[in-house]
């Protein structure tokens, strides 16, 4: 009898293996586990056989059931895996198709550059101070040691308003007077960003409007050596660690001594090119020790206090950094230009 069961089990396993999908598996289950299935036949036979044979048969029948249960579960899992694999295979996509577009905004290159400048100066303790675009001739020129008719005024082509004595600031330097008058006698370390205006024909190289950032430090022990330290730190953080920086004597009526700061040309590496006008150097800012007259106009006694100031463009560095060859791009707001900034 038990041999019969072994044979039955072998048969069952063979047919189970032949079941290739869930329908065949179900048919097999009904055939073996169903109410009138093989298993219930095997179990029913238990009551018909002799008492002596019953324990051995019972044991074999149980083994038979366990074998079938295990085989069914295993086969079911195999088929489930196969079906899942098939379903997933149908889910495959062309991963090279573009994703759903997200609408992107980008920061204007002048603002990006300003932020870099703010961050570099913040590390050195400089805070941002705001001053107006529409200024008095007094703040823009007179209090900066340029009385009416002063020849240095020619350095700035000025937009005048219809109100006498009111102009569009030609540089951020009038902010120096405002900061000093507000904070005197505290020591000062500020930067003054802002829009400046020049009466100049708009060309690829010159704009009538541009950003500048002015820096001003006033205290009891501010020296030209500090000015050099701050400027060199700034230039290397802004343009790269290895940059060469040189200070050459220049003239601004509101600083004395005055200097222009040059950096080795980042386009040609100092070999000479169109951008650096074949000098190998690029002018990055004007600077100097605050003129005693200007300190006094700000309320600080020049015998007790000293200070330095410098001013630089914002669009120029951006042009160098991003190799922009036409300054007019900045305020034309052409989407094709602005969208290039990552």
């Amino acid at each position: 009898m038990t041999e019969d069961l072994h044979q039955l089990a072998a048969e069952a396993e063979a047919t189970l293996h032949a079941a290739k999908d869930s329908a065949a598996l179900e048919a097999w289950r009904v055939r073996y586990f169903g109410r009138k299935g093989v298993l219930s036949d095997v179990m029913a036979r238990l009551s018909t056989i002799s008492r002596e044979e019953r324990p051995a048969y019972g044991k074999a029948a149980n083994e038979f059931r366990q074998t079938l249960d295990a085989a069914f579960a295993a086969r079911q899992e195999v088929l489930r895996q196969a079906e899942l694999a098939e379903a997933l295979a149908a889910e495959g996509v062309d991963v090279t198709l573009p994703g759903r577009p997200v609408s992107l905004g980008r920061m204007h290159p002048s603002h990006r550059t300003l932020r870099e400048i703010y961050a570099i100066f913040a590390e050195m303790g400089f805070q941002v101070y705001d001053a107006p675009d529409v200024e008095t001739d007094e703040n823009n020129f007179q209090l900066l040691n340029m009385p009416p008719g002063h020849p240095a005024r020619d350095m700035w082509d000025t937009f005048y308003t219809t109100t006498p004595g009111v102009i569009l600031r030609t540089h951020t330097s009038p902010g120096q007077i405002r900061v000093m008058r507000q904070y005197c006698p505290e020591p000062i370390r500020v930067i003054l960003p802002g829009m400046c205006y020049r009466y100049e024909q708009v060309t690829a190289r010159s704009e009538m409007m541009f950003h500048q950032v002015e820096a001003l430090a006033v205290g009891h022990n501010i020296t030209m050596a500090d000015l050099k330290g701050v400027v060199i730190s700034f230039a290397r953080k802004m343009y790269g660690e290895g940059r060469k920086v040189r200070f050459r004597c220049s003239h601004f009526p509101f600083t004395e001594p005055s200097a222009e700061v040059d950096m080795d040309c980042i386009i040609c590496g100092g070999q000479g090119c169109r951008v650096c006008k074949y000098t190998g150097w690029l002018e990055i800012m004007g600077c100097g020790m605050v003129h005693p007259v200007v300190l006094r106009n700000g309320g600080y006694d020049p015998d007790v206090y000293s200070g330095f100031a410098f001013g630089m463009g914002v669009e120029r560095p951006a042009m160098l950094k991003y190799r922009i060859n036409d300054i007019r791009y900045f305020f034309a707001n052409d989407a094709r230009f602005l969208e290039q900034f990552v």
């Binding site: 050195m124 505290e186 205290g219 009891h220 050596a225 500090d226 001594p257």
Partner: peptide
């Protein structure tokens, strides 16, 4: 100050040392 500039430019600005403030930090706002 005008004379100081004369002295500095004849010596050469490159001869001036490089330091980073030896002064009171202004109030931070």
């Amino acid at each position: 100050a005008d004379l100081i500039e004369e002295v500095a430019r004849v010596i050469g600005y490159d001869q001036i040392p490089t330091t980073l403030f030896d002064d009171t930090l202004p109030p931070q706002r």
